[in-house]
Design a protein around this nucleic acid. Sequence first.
DNA 1: CCCCCTATAGAACACATTGTTGCGTAACAG
DNA 2: CTGTTACGCAACAATGTGTTCTATAGGGGG
Lengths: 193, 193
Amino acid sequence: MKEDPRLIATRQTALDAAQKILMADGVLHVTHGAVSKVTGISRSTLYRHWPDARSLRDAAFRCIATPPNIPPKTDGPLRSDLHWLLSVLMGALNDTPWGQIAPQVVAAASTDAEARLVIAEFMKDRFASVEAVFSAAIDRGEITADVPVEQLIELAIAAPYFRKLIRHATLDAGWLDQHVNLICNLAKCEPRS
Amino acid sequence: MKEDPRLIATRQTALDAAQKILMADGVLHVTHGAVSKVTGISRSTLYRHWPDARSLRDAAFRCIATPPNIPPKTDGPLRSDLHWLLSVLMGALNDTPWGQIAPQVVAAASTDAEARLVIAEFMKDRFASVEAVFSAAIDRGEITADVPVEQLIELAIAAPYFRKLIRHATLDAGWLDQHVNLICNLAKCEPRS
DNA sequence: CCCCCTATAGAACACATTGTTGCGTAACAG
DNA sequence: CTGTTACGCAACAATGTGTTCTATAGGGGG
C-alpha cells in the first residue's frame, strides 16, 4: 500500500514554501495562511497536515537544519585537518540556509525543548567531527594526550558561531587562518600551571 | 513643569509586567492585551504609550538588556584579572534577566537592525573590559605585545555565550577555571609558525 | 482653593490570524 | 468500477491588533 501521491505533493510544496518564508521573513511569518497564499493549497488542508502553527514551523526548521554530511579527513597534519573541517563549518554558516535560520533556532531553544533537541543533535555531529581530528593527531603523536581536547573542540566551534550569530562579523578565509593557528598553538603548547 | 506622575507610574508598571511576560513566556506573548490583563491598565492607555506591539517589545528588551556595570580590575596577574572579569560575565548570563532573554535578542538581530544595535553596543562594552585586562598585562610585561589579543578576547567571551545560548550547557566555577587556564596559556605560549 | 489640562478607563469598532468543522468533489487504490 | 481518502471551500469562534469616542478622575498652575 503506497502512500497517496497527493499527500506527498502537498507536503513537498508546502514545506518548500514554508522554508522560503522562514528564511525571507523570519519564523513569525511562517503561518498556515501565508503558505496557503503562496502555494494555493487550501488552509484547511494545511491544518490537516500540520495541526497547529508550531508543528508547521518545526517541520520547516527540521527540513533546513538537516546537517550537511562532512566527509572525514584525519590524515594530514592537525593544522591541515582542522583548517579543512572548520572551513566546511564556516561555509555552511555563510552559504547554506542553516546559517540564516540558526539564530531563530537558537532563540526557539530558549523556550522550546524540540528546538533544543535539534541544536543538540546538530552540535553533537559537529563536535564528533572535530574530536576525530584531535584523536587522530594524538594517535599520530602530533600532540600529547593530556591537552584539554574537550575545551579545544568547544573553542574551535564556538568562535565561528559567536562571530556569525552574535557579533554578526564576517567569516572569511583570513579569519579562519588566524583561528586555526590559535587553536593549533594551544593544542601544542605546554600547560604552565 | 514636571512630568505627570501618572505617566511615570503607568510606564513603570507596564514595563515591569512586560519584562516578566517576556522572560516567562517569550517575546510572542508580550502584547498590549496581556500586559493589560496583568496590570489592570487599560489597553487603550497602553496603546497611547506604545503605539504598536513592536515598540512595546522593544521597550521591554531595552529595559532588560541594560548592561551591568563592570568595575575594572586590571592590577593583579592576568589570570586573576581574567578570572574575575569572566566570572562577572558568567554570573550575568546565569543569574540576570539578560541571560534569559539574550537568545531572543540574538534571534531578533537576524532580521532586525534595532536588535543588532542592542547586541553590538552590549558586546562593545564586554570587549573593552577584556581588552583593558590584556593591555594591562602587556604594560606589566606579563605577556608580549605580539599575542593576538583581538582573537583571545573573542575566544574568552565566545565560549561562555556559546555554552549558554547554543549548547545550553552549565556555566559553573569548575568550567570557568579551565577556561581561564586555557586562555592564559594561549596568551603566554610562543607561537610556532 | 478652584479651574483647566490631560491621563486613564471603558466600550465599540474593523481587521487579520489562528484553529475547527462540515460538506461536496475529485483523485487514488484495489 | 467502487470504496476510500485527500482536497477545496465556506462558515464559524476566539484571540490579537489597532483605532476612535466619551466620560471620569487626578494633578498642576493661578
